[in-house]
Each structure stands twice: as C-alpha cells, then as structure tokens.
Nucleic acid binder design. Structure first.
Length: 493
RNA sequence: GGCAUCGUGGCCGAGUGGCUAGGCGCAGCUCUGCAAAAGCUUGUACAGCGGUUCGAAUCCGCUCGAUGCCUCCA
C-alpha cells in the first residue's frame, strides 16, 4: 500500500481561507504549479524561501508515494516594471541598462538561479517552461478570451475587461477584494489611457518600434502580459483544472487573481483546487529592499560576505533555519537566528552519526512507532516542518540517552528509527550532512592529528603550558579541539 | 485609506478554548588539570483594552504595531 493512502493531509487553502483536506483530482497523482522567478537579476533570498517551501512540499508528496508533476516556470518576458502606459518589460530594461541582448540577461540570471538552487539541494521540477517558449499558446488563449467577450483590443494591445468579467464571475475571490472597493479607491483614467477601466490588465502589449522583445500576433507585433504566461503553461502541462498552485504571498494580487480570471474567461473552469501562498522573509525585522541596503544574496550567506553576518553559513544551515518556521509565517533572518540554527543543525547531524553506532538490546524505552506517526502528523497538518523538527529533537534526546546507557533500544526499533529519521531529514527536509573534510584537506587533518598527539603527550606529562599553547593557537586559527572520552577530535570553524 | 497575513518568554519560532512544542542564549550539574566541546536539568510568555465563558494566550470587538499587495504620492 502506498504511504499516502494512510495519511490525510490538510492544506491551508487561500481560496477557501481555511485548512482543507487534500484530495487530488486523480488518486495517486498530483499536479502542482509554482510561479518561478523573473530572471532579470540575481535571485534573492526571499524568493529562495518560497521555492524552498514548495521544494519541501514536493519532496513530502514524493515521499508519500504520489506521482507529482511539478511545473515551475521561468519568466523571461512580459513582466512589466510598472503598470503605466509606458511600462517597460523588466528584462528589456535590464538589457538596455547593461547593453545586453535580452536573452543574455535571461541566460545569465537563469544560470545564477539554478546555481543557487542546486547549492540549496533543490530537486529539479518536472518541467521548467519559459514564457518565451509559449508565445503561441498565450496568443491562443487571448483569442479565446476575445471571442468570449472578456477582452478588447485597443491600438494593437489587448486588455482583459475586468468589469465585464465581474458581471458573471467573481473577480477578487482569492484576495478577498471587492471590485466596487477597488474602483472606489482608484484614480481616474487619464485621456491617453488605453484601458477602459484601471482594473483591466494587459493580455498583449503592442511593441514600440525600439522594443527588442517582440513577436508577431493577430494584433500586430508585441509581447504577452505577465499574468498570461502562467495560465498558458499551467493549462498546457497540468490541464484546465489542477490540484495545487503555489507562489509567494506578494503574488496573490493581482497575479494569481488575474490567472483565475483568465482561465475562467477562456475555458469556464476554475483552474486550481488549492491555492498555497508562502509568506515573506524579512531581514533584521525589516523588509528586504535593495534601495535601503537591507538585503542579502544567497551567495553572500555562503561566503559570509555581508556586513550583517559574523561568519558564513552553509546552505543546509540556511535551509534548516527556514524549515524551523512554518511556510505561512513571516520569517525574520538575522545573524543571531542563523547562529542558533547552525548549533541546532549540528546537534541533529551529530545525533544521526551517533545513531549508527549505538548498541541495541532486547527492549526499547523509546516508542519509535508512536514517534514516527507524530512526525507524519506534523507534516500532514499543512506541512508543519517546525513541529517535525521538534519531533526530530525528541529523537535526538533519546539517541543521546541510549548512547550514554540511560535508555535502551531494540534492533528492530533502531532500524525503524534510522530509516524514519533519515527519510525526514534528507528526503523530506532536503538537508545535507556536513562534509567531514569541510574547510580542510587531508593534509590539514594529518597536521592537526599530529598536534593532537603532541598535546596528549604534553598533557600526560602534565606540561599544561605546552598543551594549552597548542590548543589556544589552533583555536586562534579557527581550529577547535574537542576533548571527549574517546580522545580528541577537531573541527574547522 | 482598502485588502491580506500576523504580533508568543533574552533571541528565533510552533501551538491552541482547560493537559501550556522545539532550537539558541543564560544559569546549575556531569565530564575535565583548567577550559572548550559534549550530555543532563531549568523557563507558566502569548501587543494593549474591553467582552463571551466555569475557564482564553487560544473565540468576538476596538486600539496600537509589523509585513505584503492595491491606492495615494512620485
């Protein structure tokens, strides 16, 4: 029997506003779409958190035995800098500023994106489509929406008619907004506006002569609107209705609202059963913004090359840090918080090593079966990784107690504990064990071992001046000696 | 101004109508020549003010604050 058949999952659904029991459209199969990055600059850490949350969700579904088709797009066209009439495509703007071909910009930052995600140990999605690769599909949807009367053409551009749509559909149901309120709160249209109403959004934008990113269409040369690509690609690969659509909280409105409108206007179906939104990451309690200097790149955390950090942190520590918070909560990143996570992460990893070596006996003081179910209960309750991690530390406590002979475990339970904890730590949370030689080389290890031996001789001779000198000077170089019952080990800080 | 998500002990963060996670730090203990490391033990906190209730941090209302989006501004 597949594991998923015995685990009922609840998901916080933005559409219903509550936790709904998850039922996939096709038993054993899940279709999941997540809005990917707009590749016009280095991926920032907040983006990584969103994608990491869905990576964890993808991993958990797979662990349960679901066949998941996970689609995460690359936005390489159509995302406008602002919604004004002279709105410029984000990528085209960057290309102009850096004197590059737009596709050079796309290539550069797509590579950066994949690079960072690989360091974070992400699983690749099943399909990673690009907006520019689906222009034809987008044009087809626009035709469809025009035909149904929910869009209009002005001066070579096509706009979605929100007011018309709202007459027989509900625009704003995802974000909890009412169209009347939006209209009441909106500025008047100016004379040169092409839109009938300020709420209308572009499905297709006419390209001015100097615009490089352009494709032919029935309405003239232009480029697709930002919201449309996700509708085109999710429909193509997952169907007119699919299980899960995810993204950052900031995309709920207008992006996801518009996706719903486009899908309902073109094919009459509500496109998604479960809308999931990951919350924001703040830095030192304030929002991340390049303009205020309150920002950090993933690469800067790995290298420690940022003023707010006292040291560098490995990708797994950052991942562990993020997994200690629930994906729907705002998470605040700070040096202290990372330091705390690093210690906890190391303790967890040490316990995993100890677990391999502990001896078994006839009876167990640790109810592994009940503990295992608590781990699943945590994950089944809207992917509650903080609770899962609390359970993992519960196991750590038992592992240490068994090692010290205060508790015992049967061989059978040990096998179960080991397979369960490894599955959750590595397969579901996606953490990676520390590399023993991290920061050092075999030669360095040899030299330090030699010094440890010399120090031991000095200590045996009660020559503490020499032994302390070795210890303190190594510490000064960032090499910490750890005296244990079975001799001295070291770690490079 | 509107919509949304929140406001938990020194810090980070779960949870939820009565049984009150976890990590880090601090303190104590064990170990140790000393220290570090490691392990163990320890915390009655839930923005404020009202209300509902036998009982609320958990439900309701208001206020204040944070973050995102929209608007405004530019």
């Amino acid at each position: 029997m597949q594991l998923y058949q015995s685990q009922e999952i609840k998901i916080q659904n933005s559409l219903s506003g509550k936790k709904d029991v998850f039922k996939p459209l096709n038993e054993g199969h899940i279709g999941m779409y997540v809005c990917g990055p707009t590749v016009y600059s280095n991926v920032h850490l907040g983006n990584c958190r969103t994608f990491m949350s869905f990576d964890m969700i993808f991993r958990y579904f797979r662990h349960l035995g679901y066949k998941v088709r996970y689609v995460r797009n690359i936005t390489d066209a159509g995302h406008l800098v602002d919604d004004a009439e002279d709105g410029e495509d984000k990528i085209a703007k960057k290309a102009r500023l850096e004197k590059l071909e737009p596709m050079e910009v796309v290539q550069r930052y797509t590579v950066d994106f994949h690079n960072i995600l690989q360091k974070f140990n992400f699983l690749p999605p099943s399909i990673e489509p690009t907006a520019t690769g689906h222009i034809i599909e987008q044009i087809e949807i626009i035709k469809d929406i025009l035909e149904k009367g929910y869009a209009y053409v002005t001066n070579g551009s096509v706009y979605f008619d929100v007011i018309k749509f709202n007459e027989d559909h509900e625009y704003g149901k995802l974000s909890g907004r009412k169209l009347e309120d939006m209209i009441a709160n909106t500025r008047e249209l100016t004379a040169q506006d092409e839109k009938r109403s300020p709420q209308d959004f572009a499905l297709w934008k006419k390209a001015e002569p100097q615009h490089i990113m352009r494709w032919p269409s029935p309405w003239g040369d232009g480029f697709p609107g930002w919201h449309l690509e996700c509708t085109a690609m999710s429909t193509k690969y997952l169907g007119e209705t699919f299980d899960i659509h995810g993204g950052g909280m900031d995309l709920k409105f207008p992006h996801h609202e518009c996706e719903i409108a486009q899908a309902e206007a073109s094919n009459g179906h509500s496109p998604v059963n479960y809308w999931m939104h990951a919350n924001m990451l703040t830095l030192n309690g304030k929002k991340m913004a390049k303009s205020t200097g309150n920002s950090i790149l993933p690469g800067e955390i790995f290298s420690g090359d940022n003023a707010i950090l006292s040291k560098s942190f490995s990708p797994s520590v950052v991942r562990f840090f993020m997994m200690q918070a629930h994906y729907t909560s705002i998470l605040d990143l700070s040096n202290d918080a990372l330091l705390a996570s690093e210690k906890g992460f190391n303790r967890l990893m040490d316990a995993l090593k100890i677990l391999k070596q502990i001896e078994t006996s006839k009876i167990s003081d640790f109810d592994v079966v009940a503990w295992k179910q608590k781990c699943y209960d945590a994950m089944n309750d809207d992917f509650n990784t903080p609770i899962l991690i609390a359970q993992l530390f519960e196991a750590v406590k038992h592992i240490n107690a068994i090692k010290e002979g205060r508790e015992s475990i049967s061989a059978e339970d040990k096998t179960l504990l080991e397979s369960t904890i490894n599955a959750f730590v590595f397969d579901v949370l996606g953490l990676e064990a520390k590399n023993e030689n991290e920061g050092g080389t075999d030669k360095l290890a040899g030299v330090v071992e030699l010094l440890i031996e010399l120090r031991k001789e000095a200590r045996d001779n009660k020559d503490f001046a020499t032994s302390d000198k070795i210890r303190d000077q190594l510490a000064g170089m960032g090499i910490q000696l750890k005296d244990g019952k079975e001799g001295t080990t070291f770690s490079v800080l």
